[in-house]
C-alpha cells in the first residue's frame, strides 16, 4: 500500500540525508551518537528472523540488511572516521532509562516467549523512544543545522505515514491489528509533533531552526 511504501522510502531518505550530512560537512556535529546506537540495537533485535532464513519477501530482506548495515556504518563514521567532531558532552541523555523499561515491557507484552518475539517486541518499544536523545540534544543546543532538521523530519514523516498504513490495512485486510506496533507507533509519532511544528513554521519558511527562548 502507498502509505507503507512512502513511509519506508521516507525512512530510507532519512538515512541518506544523515550520510550526506556527515560526508559533505565531514562532521557529525549535532547528531546524537546515543540515538544512533539505539537504532543499531533496534534493527539488530528486530531482524533476528534473518537468521532463520524463513524470509518474508525480497523487499523486506533487502531493507532489513540495509538498515542494519547503514546504522552500523553511521556508528563507524561517528566513532572512528569523524570522531573529533562528535561532542559527547552535549549528548547526555541517560539511555539506561529507555533500555530498562523497554526490556520490562517486552517481557510483559509480546506475541510469544521465544528468542524472536521478545527481542522483536523490545525493538518496537525501543524504536518508539530512540529519537529522544537526539531531541534532547536539540533542546540543549537550542538550534540545529538545516540538514539535521531534514533528517529528523524525514524520520518523523516515516513514522507519521505508518499510521494511515495501519488504518488502510485495518480496512482492507482481515488479519487484525498488530496492537504492539500500533500503540508504540502512535507514541513514537507523538514525540515528533513538537519538532514537526517548528520544522514547518521555521525551516520550511527558510528560517533557521531555533527553539524559542
Amino acid at each position: 500500500n502507498i502509505f507503507r511504501l512512502l513511509g519506508d522510502l521516507s525512512h530510507l531518505a532519512s538515512i541518506f540525508i544523515l550520510l550526506h550530512k556527515i560526508q559533505t560537512s565531514r562532521s557529525c556535529r549535532g547528531i546524537s551518537f546515543k540515538t544512533q546506537v539505539l537504532y543499531v540495537v533496534v534493527f539488530c533485535t528486530r531482524y533476528l528472523d534473518l537468521l532463520t532464513f524463513q524470509l518474508h519477501s525480497f523487499y523486506n530482506t533487502i531493507m532489513k540488511i540495509f538498515f542494519i548495515g547503514s546504522s552500523v556504518y553511521i556508528l563507524y563514521l561517528m566513532r572512528i572516521r569523524f570522531r573529533p567532531t562528535n561532542d559527547p558532552s552535549i549528548d547526555t541523555f541517560r539511555i539506561e532509562y529507555l533500555l530498562g523499561p523497554c526490556a520490562v515491557l517486552s517481557l510483559i507484552f509480546n506475541y510469544g516467549y521465544n528468542w524472536i518475539e521478545i527481542p522483536w517486541s523490545f525493538s518496537i518499544f525501543l524504536e518508539s523512544v530512540a529519537i529522544l536523545p537526539q531531541l534532547f540534544m536539540l533542546q540543549r543546543t537550542g538550534e540545529a543545522e538545516a540538514i539535521t532538521t531534514h533528517y529528523i523530519a524525514a524520520l518523523g514523516a516515516y513514522r507519521a505515514l505508518y499510521i494511515p498504513n495501519w488504518i488502510y490495512r485495518y480496512l482492507t485486510e482481515t488479519n487484525g491489528v498488530d496492537a504492539i506496533a500500533v500503540v508504540a507507533g502512535i507514541v513514537q509519532t507523538g514525540l515528533y509533533v513538537d519538532f514537526g511544528y517548528i520544522y514547518f513554521t521555521k525551516v520550511l519558511q527558510g528560517q533557521k531552526f531555533e527553539l524559542p527562548a
Binding site: H11, H56, M63, Y162, N175, G176, D178, A181
Partner: peptide
Amino acid sequence: PLAQEGHDEL
C-alpha cells in the same frame, strides 16, 4: 493476528 504470520512490516 499479524504476529502469527511473521512480522511483515519493517
